[in-house]
Design a binder for these strands. Structure first.
Lengths: 354, 354
DNA sequence: GATCCAGTCTGTATCGATACAGAGACTAGC
DNA sequence: GCTAGTCTCTGTATCGATACAGACTGGATC
């Protein structure tokens, strides 16, 4: 049996309240009594107020939840997600707040339960693919949250930090357009739920459920529309899961087709690196010259010479946590758009004349 | 005001217990009543049992803590730590348990408080530099924990997962010895607390407080002792903090000295990569041929052609969490030694004749 | 017809603390 | 000497649930 606060009170001969004050409000009692109490606590092996009981009474927990759609174990393998977490961590650190990483079971019913059961004061919602249900639960619990994916139906007072996905993607595509490419492939993760890997036909970009993916694909399409290349002329390639190997597998066959794309615009650096892998896997004499762009500018992108759109990752995490931990009085300030920048490297170049 | 379980009970006209059972023990009431209750809850906007209250009453929380010595934000920048976390995450996921990342303030008093206040059922202690105080708090709280750094005073029933640091380090050093190197530098993070960056004299390896660092340096020294090169003949270089840039800065001056080392054995890949950075930063005509070894075998090591000692990172995290989440009945099984492997790449070679 | 039992539901005690109003003791001020 | 005002400390109510023993049905068993 661990001793309780009551046990310490009895040992010293004071009331429970006084012992509680000794820990939580030292100014409420004399220094000597406080010392006596802490001594007695040490002697009894009392480890300090029970965090759970304290949270219940105080009405807050002192930790924020971070929600990933994907498997928790996957999140740690995504370099962008890790940098986001680092940012959240930095802010949490400054506030003396812990971070709770909540794994979501695959079934939505179970996942709802997991969000309901998380002992946190609020959530940073990292780009949950189909996040509506999660936000529902959070709202129902009356907890504050910050989301990182722009949603069309976001109410004005919802806090958000992110980028203009569409404009950012458009800048990458404009670069490709400027290099003369007209026959291109767009590569994205989970374009439609449960869609197979590889080329996919989608009536319009607004059919894509995931807001981030929709935004990026839309931005790509915008730039091509401007030079008369319509949505239907773009090859859309689906990748089930944001991984290098999945991207490589999904794109591989494309270069053997009659009129292969001269450029591939990927929805993330991880996917783009997979495309480079797929190209590198071919024998040198049969390796087409393909321009490739990514998105995010993770560390590996620089090493691989990948042209990409940089977005500030740690910053995103840091601001998300800060918006959560001390919300701005002004509702407008709760909606933060971060800058992005096209970083041109070696992976893109003019269309090869053949 | 959020409705409570009591409110739902009143609305339906049943007792609190029954509503509680509707959520937590569906077999304890008829399906129809359960539906009636859940409907009423939906209607009232009751978000399910309050996690904190539930934890208090049940006596457990459903989350495990992960403790880093270092800054939480730093942990996410250390590739090995991230892979460890991924492993913990994978195991946590399988058990439906959340992970609480607890930032530790720099002052020990505050840090103790942080560990005392963490609402968790146990801890994975990731190589806390001076971890004794943390383990004290955890023991006092009566919580189980798994540590990843072998400690000399570990009691038999303490759970542990790690590697034989000394033997692993020795294998790297033996490789260097075999290549003929005798004038070498050992590079490690925080050899002594508050020691300055750069060469450092330490009477013996047992003066080094951090058990992991001590183990690795000891292993390096063992291999050299075997060929008659004593501790005093080895150049020990301190790096304050496990980062590439700090390592580069700490080692830079060494190569301009009269008899520079022909090999550098680093206590981690991150440090070793910093050494390679420092070498690469020199003009080609003034770039000595130096063998460099790392430790961990993170992703960047392979890309950089770094010879290193591989240890299974995700595995370590996964097993740590599993030892915590379902402890083996047999105490001996609570002490897991993982295999390591010397991975020889391009960064090491014979001593250049000059 | 008495007994048993499984299936449902209730009531009370309890988890371990903090909030808040207020009670004494003591010093100041007039 | 009396009212105020500070400092300390106490007592009760409360946070929001779950555990567990027991009460009440209604049908099966003998």
């Amino acid at each position: 049996m661990k001793p309780t606060l009551q046990a310490v009170a009895d040992a010293v001969g004071v009331s429970r309240s006084t012992v509680s004050n000794a820990y939580s409000r030292p100014d409420q009692l004399s220094a000597t009594l406080r010392e006596r109490i802490l001594d007695a606590a040490r002697q009894l092996g009392y480890p300090g107020p029970n965090p759970t009981a304290r949270s219940l009474r105080r009405g807050f927990v002192g930790s924020i939840g971070v929600l990933f759609t994907s498997q928790l174990s996957y999140a740690f393998t995504d370099p962008f997600a890790v940098r986001f977490l680092a940012g959240v961590g930095a802010a949490a650190e400054r506030h003396g707040t812990s971070m709770l990483l909540v794994p979501l079971p695959p079934a939505v019913t179970d996942a709802r339960r997991a969000v309901e059961n998380a002992a946190v004061d609020g959530f940073c919602v990292y780009c949950v693919a189909d996040e509506e249900w999660a936000l529902d639960v959070i709202r129902q619990r009356g907890l504050p949250f910050v989301s990182t994916a722009a949603r069309d139906d976001a109410s004005a007072d919802e806090r958000f930090v992110g980028i203009d996905e569409r404009a950012a993607a458009r800048s990458a595509a404009a670069h490709i357009v400027g290099l003369g490419h007209r026959r291109v492939a767009l590569l994205a993760d989970s374009v439609l739920p449960d869609a197979p890997a590889g080329p996919l036909t989608v009536a319009g970009v607004d059919q894509v459920p995931h807001p981030t993916t929709r935004g990026r694909l839309g931005g790509f399409a915008d730039a091509f529309a401007e030079v008369g290349v319509g949505w239907a002329e773009l090859t859309l390639v689906n990748v089930p899961g944001n991984s290098r190997s999945a991207a490589a597998a999904a794109i591989a066959g494309l270069f053997d087709q009659p009129a292969p794309p001269t450029a591939v615009l990927a929805g993330s650096d991880v996917l783009a690196l997979g495309v480079l892998d797929a190209l590198a896997a071919r024998p040198a004499h049969d390796r087409p010259t393909v321009s490739v762009t990514g998105f995010d500018d993770v560390a590996e992108a620089a090493a691989a010479g990948l042209t990409t759109v940089r977005q500030p990752a740690e910053e995103k995490g840091r601001i998300a946590a800060e918006l959560l931990l001390d919300p701005p009085a002004d509702a407008a300030a709760g909606h933060v758009l971060l800058p992005t920048e096209l970083v041109v490297r070696d992976s893109t170049g003019p269309v090869p004349r053949s």
